[in-house]
C-alpha cells in the first residue's frame, strides 16, 4: 500500500519505457551501421528531392529508423503543400 502511495506521489515518471525506446533506436542504427551524420545527410538529400515536387520546410521533414515487426524501417514524414 505504501508503495502504491509512493508511486502516486513520485516525482519522476517510470523510466523503463524511456530506456527501451532509446535502446531500440540506438540498436537499430548500430545494426545498420548508420551514423547520425549519415542520417542528416540523407535528410538533406531527401529535402532537395521532395522540394522539386512539393513546397516543404526543412524543419517539418522527419527522418527516423524504426522497428517494424522486428525489421528496421526507414520512416520519412513531412508536411506537404502544393507548389505555388
Amino acid at each position: 500500500m505504501l508503495e502504491i502511495l509512493a508511486n502516486i506521489f513520485r516525482p519522476n515518471p517510470p523510466s523503463a519505457k524511456t530506456a527501451k525506446e532509446r535502446l531500440v533506436k540506438v540498436v537499430i542504427q548500430e545494426r545498420l551501421k548508420v551514423s547520425e551524420s549519415q542520417l542528416n545527410n540523407l535528410k538533406h538529400d531527401l529535402y532537395q528531392v521532395i522540394s522539386k515536387y512539393f513546397d516543404i520546410s526543412q524543419d517539418s521533414l522527419e527522418l527516423e529508423i524504426q522497428d517494424k515487426n522486428g525489421h528496421p524501417a526507414l520512416t520519412v514524414n513531412t508536411e506537404v503543400k502544393p507548389t505555388s
Binding site: N7, P14, S15, A16, K17, A19, K20, L23, V24, V27
Partner: peptide, 14 residues
C-alpha cells in the same frame, strides 16, 4: 514499478 526493463522488453530489443 516500471523503473526497469522487463524480460519481454529485453527480448524485444535483442
Amino acid at each position: 514499478r516500471g523503473d526497469m526493463m522487463s524480460r519481454e522488453d529485453v527480448e524485444d530489443i535483442l
